[in-house]
């Protein structure tokens, strides 16, 4: 038993050298494999959530993300919906667009964004729309987060 324990100890110690080498030589492979195997994504509170609709305006596109009410368990009372405009080179000086985020065929809010200053205005038609957080100047466009009350 003592010899077996000793053998296993030495084996693991040598394996530590192999692990150290594999960690660096297989860095890309293992990180991709880990990401695929676990299926984890960045929490939508940071990423804005999945894009559910893209509107093509010829020179630029509007990406509408899903409303985010994600909590550790269940949903939160307040959330947001993120809207991205890009690419920056195709954006007009002022973008104004209406949105129906809950797909009830009724306009919920209109966002107007000045792409030179980042100034925004919000016209609310749905009482669940609380306000606008702020505009974010991205590498290749703009984004806003419109704050929402969870109605479900």
């Amino acid at each position: 038993m003592r010899k077996l324990k000793s053998f296993l100890g030495y084996t693991w110690a040598v394996a530590a050298i192999v692990i150290a080498l594999a960690t660096f030589f297989g860095y890309n492979y293992f990180s991709r494999a880990l990401a695929v195997a676990t299926g984890v994504t960045v929490n939508p509170r940071f990423s804005g959530g999945e894009i559910v609709k893209t509107v093509d305006h010829e020179n630029y596109k509007t990406d509408i993300h899903r409303p985010v009410f994600d909590a550790l368990i269940g949903q939160t009372r307040d959330g947001f919906i993120q809207i991205n405009w890009g690419p920056a080179v195709g954006l007009p000086k002022v973008v104004s667009e209406s949105f129906d985020y809950n797909n009830d065929d009724k306009e919920d809010f209109i966002v107007t964004l000045n792409t030179a200053t980042g100034e925004t205005t919000l016209v609310k038609s749905n009482p669940a729309v609380i306000g606008i957080n702020k505009s974010y100047h991205l590498k290749n466009g703009w984004a806003v987060r419109v704050l929402l009350k969870n109605q479900s």
């Binding site: 990180s31 991709r32 880990l34 990401a35 676990t38 299926g39 984890v40 994504t41 960045v42 929490n43 939508p44 509170r45 940071f46 990423s47 994600d70 550790l72 368990i73």
Partner: peptide, 17 residues
């Protein structure tokens, strides 16, 4: 770890890989 186990998301504003 806890949020990843319960929501399958990472609570950090980075990229996965």
């Amino acid at each position: 770890l806890i949020p990843a186990a319960l929501t399958k998301t990472i609570i950090f504003p980075g990229t996965i890989f």
